[in-house]
């Protein structure tokens, strides 16, 4: 029972931490937004954060992952089709490694 209570408390605290990260940025922005130069800063933040998360993943990624990323970027650039880009990228991730191994064993 104690273990269950401990787990419940931890789950609750995790949810609270995530919730606070979601609302704190918004309410902080409400306090700061009267500062004129802050508006362009606020608008670039998500893109900067995404670049900071995508690029290291690519650096430490494999050839298959890089291929999937190129596929996603190409589809999004040409068609703006989120479903096709995401689905195709994930299919490449799933079958890429086995396909690579199969090609190496059959063509080398």
């Amino acid at each position: 029972m104690n273990k269950l209570a401990d787990v419940g408390v931890v789950l609750l605290l995790i949810a609270v931490v995530v919730y606070l990260t979601r609302i704190s940025g918004y309410f902080l922005g409400q306090r700061l937004r009267h500062i004129g130069r802050l508006r362009p800063v606020l608008e670039v933040l998500p893109g900067c954060a995404m670049m900071a998360l995508i690029v290291p993943a690519v650096v430490h990624g494999s050839l298959v992952e890089f291929t999937a990323l190129v596929f996603v970027i190409t589809v999004m650039w040409r068609q703006d089709n989120i479903v096709f880009a995401t689905f195709g990228g994930i299919v490449i991730l799933f079958i890429g490694e086995p396909a690579f191994v199969w090609m190496q064993s059959n063509f080398s």
Partner: peptide, 24 residues
């Protein structure tokens, strides 16, 4: 193999941003 799916989804979002062409 799907551990890279997160960056892929972010890449789709990033492309939406870039294609909106707002000079950032």
């Amino acid at each position: 193999a799907l551990s890279f799916a997160g960056p892929l989804v972010m890449a789709t979002m990033m492309m939406l941003f870039i294609k909106s062409g707002r000079g950032q």
